[in-house]
Structure formats: structure tokens, C-alpha cells
Amino acid sequence: MEPNAKKDQPIAAILLARAHDPDEATRIFTEKVQQRPLFLAPSSPPPSDARAARRRAQEKKRQQRKKALKPKPLSASQRRRLGLYRVPRERQRYALFEPLHQLWLGYVREVLGHEVYSGGEGAAAKLASADFHGAGVEVVRSGCVSRVGIRGIVVKDSKFAFEIVTRDNKLKLVPKEGTVFRFEVPVSDLKPTEGEKPAEEATSKMVFEIHGEQFQFRSADRASRKFRSHFSKKL
């Protein structure tokens, strides 16, 4: 009977009986094995949170689907390889950009406001954050003498250079460093009072000169920069 009784015992009880006294083995087996609590992790949220859990799961799936459908932005090298910002040779015509220049004149008059008549530090601060796509500029000073006199419409305002289409339908790349650009803004002779709109008919011109070194930022980055007047060694 004893061999059969041992066969009916669990393996844990047989091993404990070899290492401890019968009473001690029985106590350990009862407390540590038979009466050991078994903790189960909940497989589903409580009924009160089930609706919120379903909403979170649906929102997560929606975000994953939206992320999968959203195209990845092109890198700078891919944009250059595709030529997205390159002006084709057949499009390098001055007459094609004249409407853009007229739009820019209205834009710069709106940006300058009353400083278009007085100039000064107020106008400089506004011009420092302005966009020059469509501006009619002329190179008046440059470290390279051959660039002096280049005049046309800015078709690309990059970080370190202006791309200008001249009247003879040629595209010129003019670096900003060491170059002074001049542009003219037609204005009315009668200065409007505070709160009054300027006259639509322009009878004179205000001439501004900008130093390219102060504009060595992308046009999108200049919009958030603050103008700080400081001494320039090249003036």
C-alpha cells in the first residue's frame, strides 16, 4: 500500500518528504502549494471603462491609418534632384514675372505702412522680415565689379543669394554677401494722415538700399526674426 500511496502523492509532496520531517513536509506542502493564492490579470477592462477603452483603441487605429496615408516630406537632396525650385530656361522671361512684381509693390507698401515715407530704423525692421520674391532690385555695390549694374526681378530668395531675371531674359545668381541691393517703391507725394489709406496713384518713388549680409536667412526664417541695428564694417 505504501508504494501505491506514494504514487498517488504529488511530486512536490514526495520531494518535500525527502528533505523534511513528515509533519514539516505536510505543513509546507499545504501552505506553499495547496493553499497558495493564484493572481489572475484581468483580460478586459471593468464595465465602467469599457467604452473609454474602445474609444482609445479606435482613436489609435485612426491615427495609425492617418499616419500611413500621410506622405513623407521630400528631403533637400530630393527636391534638388527633382528641380522643384529650378526656373526652366523657357520660363526665364522678364515679362512673365512683371505681374509678380506689381503684386510685390503692393505687398511692400502694406508692410512698410507710413515708414515708406520716412524710412529709418522702423522701415529697416520691417524690411528685414519681408519677402523679396518679386522685388525689382539693382546691384549698386559688390565685391565683384562685374555684378554691379545687374537689374531685374527676384524670382528666388534663397539663404545666400538672389536669383534675378533681367530685362534681356537672363537668369543671374547674385550672392548676398558683400553686395548692396537697391529697390524703388512708387508712392504718392501726399503723405496720408494716421488711419488714412495712401493714395492709389503713385507720383514719386522712395529708394531703399539693403545690405545682403543682413538678409542671409531664408525668407520663411526672416519673418520670425527681430531686427537689431548694429554697426557694419563694410558701410
Rank of each mutant, 00 (worst) to 15 (best):
M1E: 06
N4G: 08
N4R: 11
A5R: 07
D8M: 06
Q9F: 04
Q9Y: 04
A13K: 13
A13H: 05
I14E: 12
D23H: 15
E24R: 03
T26H: 10
T30Y: 12
T30V: 10
T30S: 13
E31A: 12
K32S: 15
K32G: 12
Q35I: 02
L38Y: 11
S43F: 02
P46K: 01
P46Q: 00
P46G: 09
S48K: 05
S48Y: 06
S48T: 11
D49M: 14
R51D: 15
R51P: 05
A53W: 12
R55C: 09
R56K: 07
K60L: 10
K60R: 12
Q64E: 05
Q64A: 15
R65F: 05
A68K: 10
L69K: 14
K70F: 11
L74R: 04
A76T: 07
R79M: 13
G83Q: 03
L84M: 06
L84Q: 05
Y85I: 00
R89P: 00
R89T: 10
R91C: 07
R93Y: 02
R93M: 06
Y94S: 00
A95T: 09
L96A: 11
F97K: 03
F97A: 09
L100Q: 15
H101Y: 08
H101E: 15
L103T: 08
L105K: 10
L105W: 01
R109V: 08
L112N: 00
H114A: 09
E115L: 00
G120M: 06
A124N: 08
S129T: 14
S129D: 10
G134K: 09
G134M: 09
G136L: 06
V139S: 07
V139K: 04
V139Q: 03
V140D: 05
S142R: 08
G143L: 11
C144F: 12
V145I: 13
V148I: 05
V148R: 02
I150R: 02
I153E: 00
V154T: 04
K156P: 00
K159H: 14
F162S: 04
I164Y: 01
D168F: 15
K170Y: 07
K170D: 13
L171M: 09
K172F: 12
L173D: 12
V174C: 15
V174L: 13
P175N: 08
K176R: 10
T179F: 07
V180K: 05
R182T: 04
R182A: 10
E194Q: 14
E194S: 14
G195F: 05
A199Y: 00
E201C: 09
E201Y: 05
E201K: 13
A202Y: 01
T203G: 02
S204R: 14
S204L: 05
I210F: 01
E213P: 01
Q214A: 15
F215G: 06
R218H: 12
A220T: 12
A223S: 12
R225E: 09
F227A: 04
K234M: 08
